[in-house]
Amino acid sequence: MIKQFLAVLRNDFKAVFRSKQYLILLGSLLLYSFYINFIYSQGDIPGYQVYVYDALTQSGSAAEITQVNSEQGLYDMLNMDREAIGVVKSKSGSKIIYNDTGSPRLNNLKYYYAWQATGRESADYNTQILGSITQSEQKRIEMTSVVVFFEITAISFLSIAALFFKEKQMGIIKVYSILPVKKSMLVLSKIVVFLVLKICFVLLMGLLNLDIAYFQQIVLKVMTQILVLSPLMVLLGFMCSLQYRNFKQFVFAYTVIIVAFTSPVFLFVNTQLNWRGIRYFPTYHLYNNLRQVFFNRATPSAGYYLVCGATLIILYLINLKMINREMKRS
């Protein structure tokens, strides 16, 4: 069984290398890295202009304020709730503390939010930003997360279909129907091949475009997201390629998926545009979680992983059923 699986795996790796897909991967890696390093991260986005209307007659504090017993307790709270803002008031000096958002605009807003919430009683608060990153780094992280997501959702999806349509064209699926091999191996092998390729891609993207020390901090979290995202897209790609009789039909479905489900996510997550409906797109949650871990912010909830796990199992079973159907049909 293991010998058979290794044989299928080796063959799928060879097929990927023969089809020169690694060149596309390598090419896109270099192209995107060039773009991130020399174009995107070099651009300058001005911060918010802050206008202060000092109406001292107004008073009161925000209902969100919670008292903690010690300074250490405050840091612990900030570690747990990375969106929260801490305020330390002491004789030696008062300070506003928050986790870096990666965006100077948001950092400013956080500062003034805390200042407002505490009743603006002192104008000389010091600022302590935890896990600080520069604007250029923030841009690199942002674009790296976009590229990784695009690479996995769009390119992987297309690559698996191209690989499978080629096998279909050669009639190999018919041969598998009469071989003493478990059909599940055919799916598992492709998942492993593309997972390995994507892990390599993400590692190289991280090393080429992010600060190495920073990348070390997030690499495990990012890989966890890749472990979810890559098999999902491979299974979806495999399913679509089994569903459609030829590559033309598949390309139509692919275009619909990219235009309708993937592109809007970039639009609504990375720009100021806002639309509540985007939360109903599965791709929104996949991208948003990937982005969050790239920025070393809150990690996805157990519920998210549960839904992803269930989806993976369902897609896997659908794939097996569709392989059997394809074998009967052929």
């Binding site: 097929a15 050669m170 009639g171 190999i172 041969v175 071989l179 003493p180 091999v181 478990k182």
Partner: peptide
């Protein structure tokens, strides 16, 4: 699997990995 170890099938079209 054991059944498929005992049989050989030749299809009308020669299905092989062309590469």
């Amino acid at each position: 699997g054991g059944f498929y170890e005992d049989i050989g099938v030749l299809f009308e079209m020669p299905y092989l990995y062309s590469t």
